[in-house]
Design a protein around this nucleic acid. Structure first.
Lengths: 231, 231
DNA sequence: GATTTTATATGATAATTGTCAGTTTTTCGA
DNA sequence: TCGAAAAACTGACAATTATCATATAAAATC
C-alpha cells in the first residue's frame, strides 16, 4: 500500500475538517477507511438512504441533488476534491437528504461513521472545524436561495458559468475543465433543459461563450458578469 | 432582578444549543448577557454588520433577509422563540450575511461572543449541539432551494400558509397567530407583492383561506396541501 | 460501420409571472 | 377625528419561462 493511500499524507485533507484531527485519530480513520472509484453517472448514495459513513473526495466531482415532486432533479451543490459528503446525515443521524452522483470519474474514501462520531465527541477542535465548514455551506445555501428567487434564468446561467470557471478553471484555449451537460446546468439553475440550451445558444451568438464539441468556454467574462449582475 | 432573567432558569434555552452548556458556562453567559426589547419593524442587525455576539429570542419573531441586486428583500428564514440568531457569523468570524428585522414586538437576549467562543473551544458537547442545529438549518435551506426552483409561486404560497399554521398555530376561530404582511409573504416565497396578493385573493375565492381584518386563516388545509403538492 | 440511443437544438405556443398605473382600504399619528 | 401615509387590491399588458413537437448531431453499442 503506497503512501498516497494514508490519510496522514493525503493532500486533500488540507481542504477539509480532517486536518483538525490528532495523529491518533487520523490513524484510526486511515485504518478503517475504504478507497473506492466511482464511474461517471454512478451514485455514491441516494436520497433517503441511511449512511454508515462519509465520503471524502480525492478526485472528480459529484453533484448533490434532490428529486422534486414534478420529477426533476434539483442540483443543490457540486462537491469537489477535498470536500466531505454525507457529513450532515451522519451528524444528525438522519437518512440522506440528497443524492450524490458522480459527474465524472471519481476517487473517494469512505470513512465509517464511528471514526467520525467518536472524534466529534472528544476533540473540540475537530468539532469546531466541522462546524466552521457547515457554517460556510449554510451561507452558500442562503445565497443560492436569494439568487434562485431574485434572479432571472439568464442571470443564473451566466453565474453558473462564472462559477464553473472560478472553481474548476479552464484550459489554455479557454475551455472549462469541468464540462456539465446542458441538462445538469439546467438542474443547477433550476430551469427547463430547453430554456437552458436556448440561453446558451444566445450567449454564443452574443460572443459571451464559445463551444468546441462538448466543451464550453467563456469568451467575455466581464460581459457575463454584467449580465449576472443585472446590467 | 427576578429569576426569569437568569439563563439558568430560562425555558427558551431548552430549544437551543445553550442547553448543552455546563452550569458555570451558563452562569458566565447569564452574567454577560443583555436583555433587549425590539419593536416591530426595528432591526436587530443588518447585513454586512460585524456582530459582537448572538441574539437569543425569548419572544416574538424575526425575519432574516438579504437584499438582492434588484432591490428586493428575500426572506431566507423566520426565527422564533428559542432560536439563536447570528451564530453563523460569530462562528466563522465574518460579518452578517443576513439582516434581522422584528416581525412583531420581540424580547431578545444579546450574548457577547466571548461567552460563546470560549465554550465552543472547550466544551465538545456544546459545540456538537451547535453543529446539530446548524446541520438542521442546512437541510432546511437545501429544501428551500429545491422548492424555490421547482415549485410555482402558487405552490410556494400554499406551502407558506401551511408552514405558518404548523409553526405558529392558529386561534380558536382558525386565524393564524402570526400575521405577515402580503409584502413579507411575497418576500418569503420570492415573488412580486402584487402576484402574492392576487393569489391570496384567488385562494379566498376558492375557499382555501379566509380573512378578517388583517388576520388570515386556513379554511381547507387539505386543499392547500394538495395544491402545494402539485395536484 | 450501421444502427440505436442520447444529447443538443429550434420553432410554435401556452402558461406563468412581473411591471406599471391607478383605486380602495386600513392604519396611525398629529 | 381628521388627514396623510402605508398597505391591500385590481386591471391591462409585457416579459419570462415552460411545454410540446420535431429536427439534427453526437455518442454509444453491437
Amino acid at each position: 500500500m503506497d503512501h498516497k493511500t494514508r490519510c496522514e499524507n493525503c493532500i486533500v485533507r488540507q481542504f477539509n475538517s480532517l486536518r483538525a484531527m490528532t495523529k491518533e485519530e487520523l490513524k484510526r480513520v486511515s485504518d478503517s477507511k475504504l478507497m473506492k472509484t466511482v464511474k461517471k453517472g454512478e451514485a455514491l448514495f441516494e436520497e433517503g438512504e441511511k449512511l454508515n459513513g462519509v465520503y471524502c473526495v480525492r478526485d472528480g466531482v459529484s453533484k448533490l441533488s434532490k428529486l422534486s415532486a414534478n420529477g426533476k432533479d434539483q442540483i443543490v451543490k457540486l462537491a469537489t476534491k477535498g470536500e466531505v459528503m454525507g457529513q450532515r446525515s451522519v451528524i444528525v443521524e438522519e437518512s440522506a437528504n440528497l443524492s450524490a452522483v458522480a459527474v465524472n470519474d471519481m476517487e473517494v474514501c469512505f470513512i465509517p461513521k464511528e471514526a467520525i462520531i467518536n472524534t466529534l465527541h472528544s476533540n473540540p477542535d475537530f468539532t469546531y472545524e466541522v462546524l466552521r465548514h457547515m457554517a460556510h455551506h449554510l451561507k452558500e445555501a442562503d445565497d443560492v436561495i436569494v439568487n434562485m428567487s431574485q434572479k432571472t434564468v439568464k442571470q443564473r446561467i451566466a453565474e453558473a458559468f462564472l462559477y464553473l470557471k472560478h472553481n474548476y478553471g479552464d484550459d489554455d484555449e479557454g475551455y472549462l475543465l469541468l464540462t456539465l451537460s446542458r441538462e445538469d446546468i439546467a438542474n443547477v439553475v433550476g430551469t427547463a433543459t430547453e430554456s437552458c440550451i436556448r440561453i446558451i445558444s444566445e450567449f454564443k451568438k452574443k460572443g459571451l461563450l464559445k463551444s468546441s464539441g462538448k466543451k464550453l468556454g467563456i469568451v467575455n467574462e466581464k460581459g457575463l458578469q454584467d449580465l449576472a449582475d443585472g446590467f
